[in-house]
């Protein structure tokens, strides 16, 4: 069990997301940076989409009441265990009474705290993710607060190769975020698309788990085109342009939307989007669907390799 001493800015239970219920209006939710979540889980020997704590901007302080193995991956929150700095991206043992403290995020915005065997919260619609908008899932449908206590499902005191279980995630924040055009790219003027892909946008302060609100040069529609469509589905990364400014729809997005969508951020680059902080500058670049799917396959291969390395190459 963990005891929350200080919840940090926004700490929620998230997993790979709640698929299968969007036709009833239930948002997918899940980790914003699914790659870092998967890495944290693999470090502690979990399946990649097990429920973890997603921590944001300023991390929490928690006390372990039970022995377990944990790992933090994603942004660097300068974590300490009983006041001693510990590395990000490494499996660590914790004993009863140990205090893990996370500071402000550097080199990113979100981190993932995984615990061996997973967190003991109910599976609702086959997912442990917190749905903040409808207040269910995760830990009582809300973000963690001081003095909350969450149990473990199957805590471990040792896992194979414990001290060699490390991964170093890097984010290239200078790289453009890549986008596949469509489904309504043809509603935009050629100039509008040119502006979107040649300008720098700023991550707006109203950005949250529902969407990254980008601020910058106005993206114009074709003459006579409407910013509204008959409501259609929305994928994670979909770029809606309701009023000339792009909004990248993220994990907590509504299941359907009635605004034209210029394109969609590729899955392999969603972590870059999730790790940007308000005020950061972002550029976008168009690529083909084929390239996007190749990059996603590469990413999934890296995760499988990490899993193989951890399970087979670790000594002890």
């Amino acid at each position: 069990m963990i005891h929350v001493l200080n919840p940090g800015f926004l700490t929620t239970v998230q997993d790979g997301g709640r698929f299968g219920y969007q036709r009833f209006g239930v948002p997918v939710c899940g980790a914003m940076d699914a790659y870092a979540m998967a890495a944290a889980n693999l470090l502690v020997g979990n399946r990649p989409d097990e429920g973890v704590l997603e921590i944001t901007e300023v991390g929490p302080a928690i006390r372990f009441e039970t022995e377990n193995i944990f790992a933090l991956a994603g942004a660097d929150f300068l974590p300490t265990l009983n006041g001693v700095p510990i590395p990000t991206g490494q499996a660590m043992p914790a004993h009863p009474g140990d205090v893990l403290e996370c500071g402000p995020a550097t080199n990113g915005f979100r981190g993932y705290l995984a615990f061996s065997g997973g967190l003991n919260v109910p599976n609702i619609m086959e997912s442990k993710s917190t749905c903040l908008s409808a207040q269910f899932g995760g830990f009582h449908g809300r973000s963690l607060q001081k003095n909350d206590e969450i149990g473990f499902c199957a805590p471990q005191c040792w896992i194979k190769g414990l001290l060699q279980r490390t991964v170093h995630l890097t984010y290239d924040f200078n790289a453009p975020i890549r986008v596949v055009l469509g489904p309504q790219a043809d509603a935009f003027s050629a100039d509008g698309l040119e502006v979107f892909f040649s300008s720098e946008y700023r991550m707006g302060s109203a950005s949250d788990r529902m969407g990254c609100r980008m601020e910058g040069a106005e993206i114009r529609l074709k003459a006579g085109a409407s910013p509204n469509i008959l409501s259609d589905g929305v994928a994670m990364g979909s770029i809606q342009v309701p009023n000339g400014q792009p909004i990248v729809m993220m994990a907590d997005r509504q299941t359907t939307g009635g605004y034209v969508k210029l394109g969609c951020v590729i899955t392999a680059d969603l972590p870059l989007m999730a790790q940007r902080r308000p005020g950061d500058r972002v550029r976008f670049q168009a690529i083909t669907l084929r390239e996007a799917q190749r990059l996603l396959a590469d990413r999934n291969r890296r995760l499988r390799n990490l899993q193989d390395d951890l399970e087979h190459n670790a000594y002890w």
Partner: peptide
Amino acid sequence: IIPCGDSAVT
């Protein structure tokens, strides 16, 4: 059939 990113179509 119109692609919506790399993991969805409409």
